[in-house]
Design a protein around this nucleic acid. Structure first.
Lengths: 154, 154
DNA sequence: TCCATATAGTACGATTTCGTATCATATATA
DNA sequence: TATATATGATACGAAATCGTACTATATGGA
């Protein structure tokens, strides 16, 4: 009978992606449990991105930053817009396009979320230290960059 | 004016979770692009789990293994059952429960998926080595275990 | 035994994700 | 300039996710 097991290299990579998937799952659930308003992880991620790298970006650029389909980002942005956390203005340099700006309310919502998150982060750090987190980042970035290059363009 | 930036420890943790989220996103998309039948990542993960740790497990145990809500797992199992990739039998030890068994067709589907994945894995490995993957795993497991303990029970 | 409570699983519905199709505008080429 | 093609964004619909509520069975205590 044929050996049905994948080679051990493959097994290891499966396990890596499996751990990553479970962490994503758990961290998303933990995040959304802490948010009192209905703020979702994608929504917060976008607000945080706009503050960190600056607003006035196009929806497509934001979709690429998170590697999600532009239709998914369109939905997230529509929700943020409805809640007045961002503002969508026409792009003066491209009549087809728009630019996304975070509002004062959006900044406040981001800060409120960060405050709500602080105790959770504080709980993690004694067990899983900043050093350990920092040690993981280069490898994860490298993996992400590989997958990024290998993918079909969004 | 107040400083709106989170402390650098928090920033670092955000970045860690952000990288993990993006990798999850990219790997899921890459996986599903390669599958010719409609096999999804959750479906494959369940089949693979049943082969690796053995079948005859309850739906709830499987949901816990992947840290997803039992209603989500119920949906995934229903799809696998419709496709005859698994079989759900009553649990002889618990009249409320069921046991999940992988079928011959399910084993074949798993192996076919692994074969379809092999070239992708082979592309990663020269760039992102087994050693690098192995180096990440202990830290990721530790983080996953922490989040697991901290969460509300499923 | 009887009843209260807990647990396994699913039905259902709200929301999210995301692929396809579409529209509007931009860009390139003749 | 005129036309073809490419691109930004959204509408729409199918499928996945997951919370709430429900059913059926199990378990523990009076």
């Amino acid at each position: 009978m044929p050996n049905s097991d994948p080679p051990s290299d493959t097994r290891l990579m499966f396990e890596l992606f499996n751990e990553i998937g479970i962490i994503e799952q758990l961290s998303r659930t933990a995040f959304e449990a802490v948010m009192t308003d209905g703020m979702t992880l994608p929504q917060f991620s976008v607000l945080n991105h706009l503050v960190r790298v600056g607003d006035g970006r196009t929806p497509l650029a934001i979709a690429r930053a998170f590697q999600v389909p532009k239709t998914s980002m369109s939905h997230t942005l529509a929700k943020l817009d409805q809640a007045d956390l961002i503002e969508m203005r026409p792009n003066p340099e491209d009549g087809r396009g728009k630019l996304v700006f975070i509002t004062a309310k959006g900044r406040a919502a981001r800060e409120s979320a960060i405050h709500a998150l602080a105790p959770e982060i504080a709980q993690i750090l004694p067990v899983f230290t900043v050093q350990e987190a920092a040690a993981l980042l280069p490898g994860l970035r490298k993996l992400r960059e590989f997958l990024d290059k290998a993918r079909d363009p969004l």
